[in-house]
Structure formats: structure tokens, C-alpha cells
Design a protein around this nucleic acid. Structure first.
Lengths: 224, 224
DNA sequence: GCCGAACCGTAACGTACGGTACGGCAGTTG
DNA sequence: CAACTGCCGTACCGTACGTTACGGTTCGGC
């Protein structure tokens, strides 16, 4: 019950505890929501008693596992000092391909699956965590870039949230829901790059300032 | 085991069986994946023996329930005979607001939740059904419209699939994943209409033929 | 009115799994 | 060495639930 005292943030964890959580994470990817405490204990070569002592109950273990995975993703902030059209374009393409790589990874799919499943029944804590470290974190990182670009006259929009959501939609499209529903969707590195470039061109076509919207709105591809 | 013989397509069902499936559907919306056979039997005022005789096992009941809901959604095909820019725009806005209404409905959220949850572990049959009657059905209905519009010179694209996926992304954006993860996201009728209109304007800005792309690509809203 | 089929309500069975208790072992402290 | 601590391995308990079995009831057909 009081397990969340020792598992704040995800920083104060013993190496052994991190090993256990990594084992739980691997098992979560393999088994999905139907992993058992016994299986986690066996995989991590620890006793169930230890699991319950460290994480309280099954819910605490799942929460700690998701938080542990979330804490592993740390991103360097983008310097909004000098930004021009090529660097903006490169930055957007970077965000897009990063995001596509994340949502198509086995780990992300497994974590989102269990979070979605549990959001239905009782505490939707896992859903909030996944959302906070996924879509919301992306928005927090991307919005300053968008606003800096607007300050430089490269983009034109009223609401950064709306612009971000358009970018999100252009990038993700139907990929995440199809993967979550079990669609066998191959996403090679090259395809991710192409999709990221297309999404960036389309976003610039929609939100670029007038003198920058000279590309990407037709079926004829521009330079790249 | 052999239950799927009597539950093909979803058409040959007794009225009583439909009642049972409706009860199961309501319970699925309320309880999510953790509905029990006992609860379904009690809600439907039928015996568990009957449930097992009709649907084989729990999996068969869930599958039949999802198929039953899917079979309830029937859409009139759009006449692709004469289509001009205003009718295309209205048609796209209709598709967009319909889709937003669907994915934000409690029923769709519940069904997608259980399908996503079960896509992780064993047979991903439910995921395939939901995908087939959701995204894929939308694509089948929308693509003829897009191609008819291209034939009339209203749209310009190489691949209808790519164009559809862009439309899908512009419409859905982050709505579905946020709702599935438990985000309290209010979507009023008015907001759905605004979002549908915005997505349509953006789609036309990206894929409209040159003489029709004179609106919707800036933060200043056009006429409507 | 009688028969069989279909079905309701409920009790019972088997199992899987979350959670707990306990014995043993290794490392540490004194 | 003795006592203590932390943890592993495992056996165990209670419960929830899928699944089955059965007695009782309704209903259409003869």
C-alpha cells in the first residue's frame, strides 16, 4: 500500500531493483498484461516476498516498471537561439522520426497496451504516466521550437497547441492505433525517414510563413 | 469450440441473442475487459449455460459482441456521380465529424480498449475486427470519394492510400490515443464541427488542385 | 394433457494467480 | 562464533472466475 514512498520519480533505486524492473519490463513486452508475479520473480531471480516488500503489490510493480522505462528517456533540449528554415526543417524531421521510432518500438507498444487496458477499469494512473512521458513530453519539447520559429517569422499560427496537434497528426497518422490493435505494420528506418520528411513538408505547407510555403503541397516532391 | 458456426457475419442472430449481445456490450462499456460471464448472464437475464451453448466460451462471446456492434454500423455509399468543390468539402467534413464522433464515443473507446488489451497476448482476432470495421472501413468509404475528386480535377495526389492517411491524421490527431489512455477529453458537438472543418481545410490545402488551394492555410480563417 | 426442447437460476468444480509465511543461506557486525 | 539482516526458493492460503452440471420452468407441437 505505502510502496510509492520508496519509488518516487524513479531515481532512488538500487542497482538490484533496476535489474528487477528491467526483467519486469522485458516480461511485459513478451507477455503483455498477463504477466504474473511468479513469472517476474523467476525471471529476475528474486523472491516474490522481495517484490512485495519493494513494490507493495502488483499495481505498484507495474507502475514502477512504467516509471522506470519513462525515466530512461531523457532528451537534450533544443537551443532556440539561432534558427533558420533549414535548421527548423531538420529539427522537425528529427522530432518526427524520433516519435515514429518510439511509437513503433516493441517497448512502447507493450507499455501503451497495458496502460490502455488498465485505463478502462480502475485507477488510470498508468495511462496518465504514459501520456505524460509520451505525447505531453513531445509537446513540451516541440512547442518552444515552434514558437521560436514563429518569432523568427518562419511559422505562422495563433495557438501553439493547435499547431502541435496538427504536426502530431501528420506524423503519427494511423500508425499507433494500428500497431496497438495488432496490425503487422513494418516500419523500416528508410520509411520512417520518408514519412518524417513528408510530414514536415506538409506541416510547413500548412503553417509556414507565406514566403516559405513554396513546397510540399503537391504530389511532385521538391528538392529532397 | 465450434461456436463460430452460428455467429457468422453477425446477421443470423435471434432477437434474444441480439438482446444478450447488447447487454454484453453495455457491460463491456461499463466494466471493460474485466466483465465476467456471471455478470453478463445476470445482466441479460439468461443462464450461463445458454451463453456457453451459443458462444462457446468467453472469447467467443467477446468476439460476437464486437462483431455485433460492428454490424450495427452501416453507411450509405456516397454517390460519386457529380461532385464539385463545395460538395467535396461537405463530404470530407462529414467524414471527419463522423469519425471524431465515433472514436470519442464510449462504445468505441471500450471496444478499442479490450481489442488493444487482447492484441498483446493471444489471438489478435479482436484487434483485426476492430481495425477492419474502423480505420479500414473508413478508408474503403473515403477513397472512392478522393479518387472521384481527383478525376474531376479537384484533388491532386499520386497514392490514394497516402492521401487518406494524411486526412486520417489531420482529423484524429491525438484524440484517440489520449482517450484510450484515460485522458478526460471533452469533445462537444461544436468542437467536433470546428475540428472537422479545420482538418478539411488543411487537407484541401495539402491535396487540393492548385486553383482550389486559396483558403485554409493560414491562421486567419476563411469564410465559414 | 403429455413430451421434448430450450432455457433460467444456481450450485459445484478446477484452476490460476495475488498475496503471505517460513526455512535456509550468505554477508555483516560484534 | 553468535546474532542479525536481507534475500532466495518454495510451499501454502484465499479468492475470483471460467466452465460444467443439474433441477425446475416455460412453451410449442401432437
Amino acid at each position: 500500500m505505502q510502496a510509492s514512498l520508496e519509488i518516487n520519480g524513479g531515481g532512488e533505486l538500487t542497482d538490484r531493483q533496476k535489474d528487477v524492473l528491467n526483467a519486469a519490463l522485458r516480461l511485459l513486452v513478451e507477455e503483455g498484461d498477463r504477466l504474473t508475479m511468479t513469472a517476474v520473480a523467476r525471471r529476475a531471480s528474486c523472491s516474490k516476498e522481495t517484490l512485495y516488500k519493494w513494490f507493495g503489490d502488483r499495481d505498484g510493480l507495474l507502475t514502477a516498471t512504467v516509471q522506470w522505462q519513462a525515466s530512461k528517456v531523457r532528451v537534450a533540449p533544443v537551443d532556440r537561439a539561432r534558427i533558420d528554415l533549414p535548421s527548423l526543417k531538420a529539427s522537425l524531421e528529427g522530432f518526427a522520426s524520433d516519435w515514429l521510432s518510439v511509437i513503433s518500438s516493441e517497448t512502447s507498444i507493450a507499455l501503451n497496451r497495458v496502460a490502455v487496458a488498465r485505463a478502462g477499469s480502475d485507477g488510470h494512473g498508468l495511462g496518465a504516466i504514459v501520456l505524460e512521458n509520451g505525447r505531453m513530453a513531445l509537446a513540451r519539447r516541440l512547442k518552444p521550437v515552434l514558437e521560436a520559429a514563429r518569432d523568427k517569422g518562419l511559422l505562422a499560427f495563433d495557438d501553439a497547441e493547435t499547431a502541435f496537434r496538427s504536426f502530431f497528426g501528420l506524423v503519427a497518422r494511423d500508425v499507433q492505433i494500428r500497431l496497438l490493435l495488432g496490425d503487422r505494420l513494418k516500419l523500416t528506418e528508410a520509411e520512417i525517414g520518408r514519412d518524417a520528411a513528408l510530414a514536415t513538408r506538409q506541416f510547413l505547407a500548412l503553417y509556414g510563413a507565406d514566403d516559405n510555403r513554396d513546397e510540399g503541397h503537391k504530389h511532385k516532391h521538391p528538392s529532397s
